[in-house]
Simulated assay, not measured.
Amino acid sequence: MKTLVLREPGQIALDVSTEPAAPAPGEALVKVHRVGVCGTDIHAFRGKQPFFSYPRVLGHELGVEVLAVGEGVANVKPGYRCSVEPYINCDTCVACRKGKGNCCTRIQVIGVHADGGMRERIILPARKLHPSAKLSYDQLALVETLGIGAHAVQRSGLQKDEFALVIGAGPIGLAAMQFAVEAGAKTIVLDINEARLEFCQKQLGVQHAINGRTEDVLERLMEITNGDLPDVVFDATGNAASMMKSFEYPAHGGRLVFIGLFVGEVTFDDPNFHRRELTLLASRNANPEDFGRIIGLIESGRINTLPWITHRATVEEVPGLFESWTKPETGVLKAMIGF
């Protein structure tokens, strides 16, 4: 079967791999129809993805069709269209026992720690499939990205009419904005890409945009919040300088949520941190309930995923196009691969 393999940084190739076996008890065999390309895939292609090894089959944003199920599977049947929750957790560690499988001590994220979905067919635990009779494969492939943002907003405890600042207008930042707006927050986006700032305001309903390259960020934040600064700040950049600078932006008593990560140490001024009595939170992956909620919001029309997809390719075209998707001047927001 056709399989895209990232052999080493900068080299992705279309190979032929062995067909998967019949699904075991609790498993499902699925056909991959769509794969969304995310920041993790881009970082892996560049050789800058933490906790990563080569060769690797990328792909964890998936829209799939169930082909067959193993014994004991009741949540899906052949023919079901599904989104995939790609976080394979152990169900027994301390995090899993507390309902936090998203940060399982032995987690294996497909497409990152284990081979993913850039292939025609794959075996998955059936419990990781989230069906919808209404959504297209494109929409289903975007549920995981939205889940990252939904989980971060839920972690923050963001309330209606609070000010929320999202730093970074990539797909994960956009997902956080989507759910900050959904929560009724007065949402602000900070980025250095004018086109993305415009997209956030026109397509997502974000009220305020700040260009960090041309504007004084603190001055603008004070102006927007009537001198208070934002109640919640989400950093979705995975950039060390941005993450350390973000400690300056929350209001007194506010919350700072790191969605992105980098390999290294975060430092901050402790008196400033204590004086404001800030709450610092990490947000990782998403939980099963996030997937169900997001599917319902897309089905009801409250979330529109169509503007997200800016580039498309067939599996055969990907080796010749993937490098271009890593370049900002290409204008890629979300590339979608069709199998």
Rank of each mutant, 00 (worst) to 15 (best):
G116A: 02
G72W: 11
G111F: 14
R312L: 07
V76G: 07
R155H: 12
E265N: 08
A164G: 03
E182K: 04
T310Y: 05
V30M: 05
G116P: 10
L62P: 02
K134Y: 10
V257N: 13
V332G: 10
C96E: 12
L6R: 01
R119D: 10
I148T: 14
F247A: 02
V57A: 03
S300V: 01
G184H: 04
T92W: 13
D270P: 03
G184S: 10
A175M: 09
G26E: 00
N239A: 12
A183K: 15
N211A: 00
A169Y: 12
A169T: 15
V206S: 10
V166I: 14
P319W: 11
E277I: 14
Q178N: 04
V112I: 15
I259P: 02
D41A: 11
K2Y: 03
R46S: 13
Y249W: 10
H208I: 03
E182C: 00
E71L: 09
V153C: 00
D191H: 05
P50Q: 01
I295F: 01
R106H: 12
S246K: 13
L278Y: 13
F268P: 08
R56V: 00
P288M: 14
I192L: 11
A74N: 07
H274L: 12
S53A: 09
R276E: 04
M1E: 02
T187F: 10
L190C: 13
G47P: 08
E27W: 06
V94K: 08
